[in-house]
């Protein structure tokens, strides 16, 4: 599984949505499933899948799929 697939899996797992909805512009609170509880579940999924530890500022800045990918890139994850 490549990192893009891992990222999509994190979103589908944490938000309970199909993979076709996981596009760059999908945003926090844009859909009912991506609420604050799901956001923290997403953080746990991402940290486990990519073996990183995000800081609070990054968690707050992770407001779209694109933002999330860019934050992971800062942690050395390549896409």
């Amino acid at each position: 599984m490549n990192n893009h697939e891992k990222l999509v899996n994190c979103f589908t797992g944490a938000l309970g949505i199909p993979s076709n909805l996981v596009i760059d512009t999908l945003g926090y609170n844009n859909i009912a499933q991506w609420d604050s509880v799901a956001h923290m579940a997403l953080v746990t999924e991402l940290e486990s899948a990519f073996d990183v530890m995000l800081d609070t500022d990054e968690i707050l800045a992770m407001s779209t799929v694109l933002d999330t990918r860019e934050i992971l890139v800062k942690h050395g994850i390549t896409f």
Binding site: T44, E47, M53
Partner: peptide
């Protein structure tokens, strides 16, 4: 608690 809980959750 903020950071510890995230390590525990995973």
């Amino acid at each position: 608690a903020q950071y510890a809980s995230r390590l525990m959750a995973r």
